[in-house]
Each structure stands twice: as structure tokens, then as C-alpha cells.
Design a protein around this nucleic acid. Structure first.
Lengths: 195, 195
DNA sequence: GGTAAAAGTTAATGTAGGATAAGAAATAAA
DNA sequence: TTTATTTCTTATCCTACATTAACTTTTACC
């Protein structure tokens, strides 16, 4: 089980002793998902916080008309969950799917809660990453209210330069909030504009 | 200084001794804002978490074309801040303004940080309310990607029934993401549809 | 390496919601 | 109570993006 990445990303925010690290690692379950395999499906209760050590996941919803909307991507080093369902333990609306073969570390809700009591520093760690996540969703909401699709795409490229090359365009379109057809036309238009 | 509301809302999530409550309250600064007065302006550094004990605030951005977009409302019992600016201590893009005469309790960033060390339970409290806030922004983002303006308005009415009566329609329009003109037309259309 | 499936493109037509303008109604300040 | 300001409405025209459909290219996997 490769845990150096998760430990590094945690100790960027809090300090842990060797024993604490060891204890934390003992709570994690490694798992591998194949391309297109679902980590979580709409209607299920989310039982885990999922940390990606390899590959990439996507969280998305399906609307009344069957169209998919991407809430988030989780590339290497990111956490993902259906936060609503994880917190309330009620059925969620999120689907989480592997975009390619993906290795994760699972932290169950009950173990996460116990962790807060055993090592209170983790309360701080999850507070901090939740705060950062909140800020980025607020910014994205403002972007969706203020900007054109073209501007939102430019922001996406600026914020996640590595993802543009790896993700199918279809998925980026579903993230910025346009149809694949319009996305295609938009890119054509942007190229023309630059020349 | 009326602190029973803030103490109640905190002790719904964590337990505090009488001394801890007293200590917490000693960190708060009461303040009153007049209608249209700004709590924070774009470009400033956000120094406080603000808790509303009376009245109502709004957080909004102004886009390139001068249009306002409402990120959030803070009625009685809610916290508000420019989270990006508060966390990074860099100039923010949010304006926070009083919609009516409003009483608040201010908790400065430095005192909040010290509070985490003095009473670690507060780390948990702010983790929990940040998680809840995150969930609602995620849901709102999905709504903006999936639903029509009419459906978003219905959701707003369902989620914040008390606010519909008190807020100017203009502000609700800027929250759900339409112009006041279209909002007006939309309401007319909805009435017709119901009969 | 072949083939089915998925992803991407292009074009024509349609629509939710924006822009502009101008007046009516409500509210606040004096 | 009056006046000024803000909010709300209605109507017309306009645009960013959606829909549909048909086609091409790329990718996965047997």
C-alpha cells in the first residue's frame, strides 16, 4: 500500500508523530477500480472518504433529461466523497466513477469519526481541506453566474493545466456546463480568434 | 451584547463548560451596521468571521459589466465572511453589505486561531459548519448546471421560505442567476401556469 | 490488428434568458 | 407629506447556448 503521498499531503497541514502516522495508515483500505467502474452510485449511502493515489475519478449527477453534470474530478492526491450523503448517511445523488484504472485509499466514516477523537489534529486537517474546498466551490459558482462558457473554460485551463491534456473533452464540457457540441464549436471559435 | 443565539447555535454541535462559553464570548465584538453600509468591500482583506444576531447581510460580487451576483445571504443566526480572503489574508473579490439595519458579532481571525488552540472543540465546530456550507454550495452548483431559472427559484422558496417575504426580488434574482427583468417575466409566467 | 464503441465534429434550427428602454409602483429620507 | 430614490414591470429585439441529426475520428479491448 503506497501511503507516502497521503502522509505528505496531510503533514503539509498538521504535524504527526511516527506512531500517529502508523495508526492513521492502519485505518486505510486500499482498493483498485477499473475504468468505468463505479465507486458510488446515485441512491446509495456514502460510507467512505476516498483518497486517490493513482488514476482519476469523477463525481457527477444525472438530471431529469439524462444529461450528466460533473461536480468534481479527483486526480492523484485528491479526496472525493458524496459529502451530503457521507454527513447525513442518507441516499445521495452523486455518482463517482473511475475515468481510468484508479487506485484509492478508503477511510470509512466510522473510522474517520474515531480518528477525530484519537488524534484531534485530524479535526484540524479536515477543517482546513474542507475550507479550501469551500472556497473553490464559491469561486466556481461566481464564475458560473458571471462568465461566459469561453471564460469558464479559460479558468479551467489555468487552474487545472494537467487535467486538460488527460481528460476527454466531453468531461470538461460537462464540468464547465455546456454540451459537447457547443464545446466543440467554442474551441473552433477560440482558435480563429487567436490567429 | 446578546450572545444567547450564538451560544445556542454552537452548543447544538459541541459541548462547552460555563467557563469556555464565557471565554468565547469575551472574544466577540458587537457592531451595528446601517442599511446599505458595507461590512467588507472588494479589494480589502477580510479580518473577521461575522455572526448576524439581527437583520440581514448579503455577500456579492460585481462582474466586468457592473452586474451584481449574490453569493450568499446571512440572515439571523448565520455566519458570513469572504472565506478566500479570510484564509489567505489576500485582497478578496467579495462585497458584504447590510440589507437593513443589522447587528453582528465579530470574531477576528487571530482570535479565532487562538480559540482553536485554547478550546480544540471549536476546531470541530467550524469543521462541521464548513462541511454543511460546502454541501449547500455543491448542491447549488449542481442546480445551476441542471435546472431552469424557474426550478432554481422554486428550490430557493423551499429552502429559504422566510427570506422570500423579506428580500427585494432584485436580490433573489441576483442569487438564482437571472436579471430582474427576466425574474419579473418569469413570475408572471408561473402565475399563469398555476391557474 | 480488427472491430465495436466511444468521443469528437459540423451544420441547421430552436429557445431560455439577456439587453435596452421607458414607465409604474413602492419605499425611504427629509 | 412631499420628493427623491429605488424597485418592479412590460414589451421588443437580440444572443449564447441547446437540440437534433448525420458524419468522422479516436480509443478500447477481444
Amino acid at each position: 500500500m503506497s501511503t507516502s503521498l497521503i502522509i505528505d499531503s496531510i503533514t503539509r497541514h498538521i504535524q504527526l508523530s511516527a506512531e500517529e502516522k502508523e495508526h492513521f495508515v492502519s485505518l486505510l483500505q486500499p482498493k483498485i477500480y477499473k475504468r468505468k467502474q463505479f465507486i458510488l452510485e446515485e441512491g446509495e449511502i456514502c460510507k467512505y472518504s476516498t483518497f486517490v493515489t493513482n488514476g482519476c475519478l469523477r463525481g457527477f449527477t444525472v438530471d431529469q433529461n439524462g444529461f450528466e453534470h460533473v461536480l468534481n474530478f479527483a486526480p492523484v492526491g485528491w479526496w472525493i466523497a458524496d459529502m451530503y450523503s457521507l454527513l447525513t448517511q442518507k441516499p445521495g445523488i452523486l455518482n463517482i466513477e473511475a475515468l481510468e484504472e484508479t487506485e484509492v485509499l478508503l477511510l470509512s466514516k466510522s473510522r474517520q469519526e474515531k480518528l477525530y477523537l484519537d488524534i484531534p489534529q485530524f479535526e484540524r486537517f479536515f477543517r482546513i481541506i474542507t475550507e479550501n474546498s469551500l472556497v473553490s466551490y464559491q469561486q466556481r459558482l461566481i464564475d458560473n453566474l458571471s462568465l461566459t462558457a469561453e471564460e469558464r473554460y479559460n479558468n479551467f485551463c489555468r487552474r487545472y493545466p494537467t487535467l486538460i491534456t488527460t481528460l476527454p473533452k466531453k468531461q470538461i464540457a460537462a464540468y464547465i456546463g455546456v454540451t459537447p457540441e457547443f464545446f466543440s464549436r467554442m474551441q473552433h471559435h477560440m482558435l480563429k480568434g487567436k490567429k
